[in-house]
Design a protein around this nucleic acid. Structure first.
Lengths: 240, 240
DNA sequence: CGGTGTGTTGACAGCCATCAAGAGCCGTGG
DNA sequence: CCACGGCTCTTGATGGCTGTCAACACACCG
């Protein structure tokens, strides 16, 4: 049931059969969510963490003023709130972007992994460090590049990450996210998201149809606009 | 030598004497850096990680276009590039903001901690998760609040974090950072950093003198402007 | 068939970047 | 001792990127 997670983790290092087995048996239940549903809320103190088996989710914070910021987008195979295992109190919420199936792993099982399977624990730790690296690259795109470059960067990142779990079809992939949610992820207004997408479309660089069918028409120009370099995604396989 | 680190970690959970002892003995060497020096560079593959014993450092990325973004500011007691232990290749650089003394811990020792001291390993893992939470709060401030609010948020955060390691004096603290570096941290131009600081000064909210002497004159207004809530810093002591 | 959510486009305003120039401070060297 | 250059801080003028407001098209759905 955690096949996609294992596939993703194996991009970074080799996992033994025993370790895969431990992971397979670590979850306690599976639950389906509709689109736009909360998986965890800010302030919650969950006793289990959640893996996305299928679907899409986003982490978000809401300010007292009501403005929302999405700080990460998660796809199949992502161990979304592994953080809550040690942070205890959620500093942010996690919501679905589309119908999503999740597997839940009790924190007690995670604790046991840190005690009995240190290598596997390091790989899980690594996966949270990669999330952190993604945050840093978002910060850089947001602080130091134009809205267009930021959008281009997000598209590049999603293509690479979806590719790593076999969810791309050549230069195309599926990303069911509204322009309002894109705005919340990039720190832009919905209107400007639309303008930027129109610009990328008119430039013959990206096709983004309703329903979330994305096709990259010109990868070179796109990654150049984004100043994209995939190093931060740690996709190199080596002992950790 | 790692007293400040231990002090910081103990804000989140109890450490046994044995665990503290392991930490104390884990570092291999100490090195002093001048201001504005690189501790690690992007692309490096370090074999040891570094703890700030005294001083200030920043993580940063430089884009091909030459623009720089600072993604984190680190203070005494921070395990700055614990990340490199598992990420292997640095996705960002770490530089000093002021003269800084660092202790270096070989990755082999960190690996041993994950094998023999799982609770201590979880606490170290937690410290990287808190870094991640800080990234998220920076993302939110950057994407969804004004330059003034962002600056206010940074000042609030620094005050709380410095307070947690005993580096505040009432409402005052020392932060040796130039306005250019502040701009790189907040995604603003140097000129606008200056205007924002002037505004906070004229409002009687913050005093920020040359040399880095910062005094918060009106905490309530400052945290209100920043929409600041310190939950994300995980300063609550509980079993992890 | 009306209501709701999403995408699209235009007009206008404002925040912040950019360019420019000057002031203060400090270390260096004549 | 003073002149000088470099770095940082400060302030003003100008422009542009992006937000806000508004209206409409379109799809979907109860």
């Amino acid at each position: 049931m955690t096949a996609t997670l294992i596939r993703k983790l194996e991009r970074s290092d080799v996992l033994s059969d025993e370790e895969k087995d431990v992971l397979e048996k670590s979850f306690s239940r599976i639950r389906d969510f509709r689109a736009d549903e909360d998986i965890v809320r800010e302030g919650d103190r969950p006793t289990e963490s959640c893996i996305i088996m299928e679907g899409f989710a986003a982490r978000y914070k809401v300010l007292p003023s009501g403005r929302r910021q999405i700080s990460a987008i998660h796809i199949s195979g992502d161990f979304v709130d592994l953080h809550s295992f040690l942070l205890k109190t959620m500093d942010h919420g996690v919501m679905t972007l589309a119908p999503t199936r999740c597997a839940f792993v009790p924190h007690a099982n995670l604790k046991k992994i840190t005690e009995d399977y240190p290598h596997l624990a390091r790989i899980l730790w690594l996966s949270t460090l990669i999330d952190s690296a993604i945050h840093r690259s978002w910060l850089t795109a947001m602080g130091r590049t134009s809205a267009t470059a930021q959008m281009a960067h997000l598209i590049c990142e999603l293509h690479v990450r979806l590719g790593a779990v076999g969810q791309t079809n050549g230069n195309s992939f599926h990303m069911p996210i509204t322009q309002e949610e894109l705005g919340d992820a990039l720190g832009l207004s919905t209107v400007h998201v639309n303008r930027v997408l129109t610009e990328l479309r008119n430039g013959g660089i990206v096709q983004w149809q309703g329903g979330g069918a994305v096709t990259i028409l010109d990868w070179d120009r796109l990654s150049e606009i984004a100043e994209f370099s995939p190093v931060y995604l740690s996709l190199q396989n080596e002992p950790r």
